[in-house]
């Protein structure tokens, strides 16, 4: 066996092993660490499957943002003295859930093997269309997200806004308008602050770069935005920055900017290119980058706000 297939088998076994460990871990923190490691390994799997865009997203969201979210949630649960553990699920329920999961996994494994080979795919058509005169993009994934399936992409950002409002809405009435609690209660030590001071500016630059090259190379608004979001959270964990007040006009505008600009450009398409969400022939690429810039902003703000949680403290 040559080196790469052997590495692939090892990677696959490692992913399954880490997944099993994440479920088996008794300690909440340990299983969160397992989950983050699982996300990073999955990102490697995507790289091996020649899907660098998915890998970037998986690393940023599955490994990064979700990890911080789970660690923060775990810490807040620990802090609640009254956080009583309910009745643990009984043996019968566990067996039932396990059997159901095994059935679904087995069925999926079986039918994936029955897939026609090569599987029917729109990827070649998307690549051809993306490079064509209408879009002039080198990255078919960006073309699919911002052009062919623009309607989906815009609405997903609206879902993100609903999620942020949903998180805010479980706060207390009296706290409405205030800022969420800081990500860390205590002041961090010098090492954390130093790390954030070095890492955040570099990450910021990489995030903007990933967005900027996304039109032609792997990357794009979501990956870039997620990386910027992670850097924002690093700064907040080092207490170099604090969560903003939720009634801040700037925050609200940053959150709606992405979908709002997308919607306006999409509707303008009816006048400029005869179709809703169509781009005029020669302006497709600059328009796509224009929309993506605002999407990066909205994503970079929305993800940390989801992690920060509901408003806390006094409104004034």
């Amino acid at each position: 066996m040559s080196v790469l297939p052997a590495l692939d088998v090892g990677l696959a076994l490692l992913v399954v092993g880490v997944a099993a460990w994440t479920i088996a871990a008794r300690n909440l923190f340990a299983s969160v660490v397992g989950y983050v490691a699982y996300g990073l390994l999955l990102a490697l799997v995507w790289v091996r499957l020649y899907a660098p865009d998915v890998a970037l997203t998986e690393a940023a969201v599955g490994g990064g943002v979700t990890g911080v979210l789970l660690v923060t949630a775990g810490k807040r649960l620990d802090a609640l003295a009254s956080a009583e553990v309910g009745v643990p699920p009984g043996r019968a329920l566990k067996i039932l859930a396990g059997a159901l999961a095994a059935l679904v996994a087995g069925a999926l494994a079986w039918v994936v093997l029955t897939l026609p080979s090569p599987a029917p795919s729109l990827a070649p058509a998307a690549a051809e269309a993306a490079a064509g005169p209408g879009a002039g993009l080198g990255n078919p994934i960006t073309a699919v997200l911002i052009s062919y399936r623009s309607f989906d992409t815009m609405l997903e950002k609206v879902v993100l806004i609903l999620a942020v409002l949903g998180v805010w809405s479980v706060g207390a009435d009296a706290a409405w308008g205030a800022a969420p609690a800081p990500l860390r209660k205590v002041r961090p030590d010098g090492a954390m602050i130093l790390l954030a001071q070095f890492l955040a500016p570099v990450g910021l630059l990489i995030g903007v770069h990933i967005f900027w090259v996304g039109a032609d190379a792997p990357g794009g608004a979501f990956q870039g935005g997620a990386l910027l979001a992670a850097m924002g959270m690093v700064a907040m964990m080092a207490r170099l920055a604090e969560p903003p007040r939720i009634d801040s006009r700037k925050l609200r505008l940053a959150l709606v900017a992405g979908p709002a600009v997308f919607l306006i450009v999409g509707v303008a398409g009816l006048a400029l290119a005869d179709n809703l969400f169509a781009y005029p022939q020669n302006f497709a690429k600059p328009l796509i980058l224009f929309i993506e810039a605002f999407m990066v902003l909205s994503i970079a703000v929305a993800l940390p706000m989801l992690v920060c949680g509901p408003p806390n403290g006094s409104p004034k």
Binding site: F151, L155, V158, I161, R249, R252, L253, A260, L263
Partner: peptide, 21 residues
């Protein structure tokens, strides 16, 4: 095009409501 506007009108409402508060 009316079909798209049936979805976009409340979506625009959401964005405006959230921004204006």
């Amino acid at each position: 095009a009316l079909l798209v506007f049936a979805v976009l009108t409340p979506v625009a409402g959401i964005l405006l409501s959230f921004a204006l508060g």
